[in-house]
């Protein structure tokens, strides 16, 4: 198979397990919410999603108590997703506008 090097590769792969992660189940359930209810009731098992790395940038959590209202995060937010509430000197995060860039979080080493 010198001219078609893919054939041996394909035949080998036929007997290996697929690379797909079967999240949430092998085939898409007819109703995802119904499936999740079943999982909650213990009638079905959920195939876990792929693990995220330790420093994954996800949804922002706001710690109200540590906030001093300096509004630096408002200034650096690229998508203007943070709003300063003048009367309480606290911020409000519009998660639908957030691009999860992590810019508002102080740099960490």
């Amino acid at each position: 198979m010198a001219l078609l090097p893919m054939f041996p590769e394909l035949l080998k792969q036929l007997f290996r397990p697929p690379a797909t992660n079967r999240f949430p189940a092998k085939y898409l359930p007819p109703s995802v919410t119904g499936f999740l209810e079943k999982v909650a009731a213990g009638q079905a098992t959920l195939v876990p999603p792929v693990q995220t790395p330790p420093k994954f940038r996800g949804k922002i959590e706001y710690q109200r108590d540590g906030c001093i209202g300096c509004s630096l995060c408002v200034k650096v937010c690229p998508s203007n997703a943070i709003e300063l509430l003048e009367e309480t000197k606290r911020i409000r995060i519009w998660v639908d506008q957030c691009i999860f860039c992590d810019r508002c979080i102080p740099p960490r080493r």
């Binding site: 420093k55 994954f56 940038r57 999860f100 860039c101 810019r103």
Partner: peptide
């Protein structure tokens, strides 16, 4: 890349004056 930067695309690693993660 996800491990180094925290995301698969839109890495957000480079900033003016350096990088954000070691």
């Amino acid at each position: 890349i996800e491990n180094l930067t925290g995301n698969r695309v839109n890495y957000g690693l480079v900033q003016v004056g350096g990088v954000r993660r070691d």
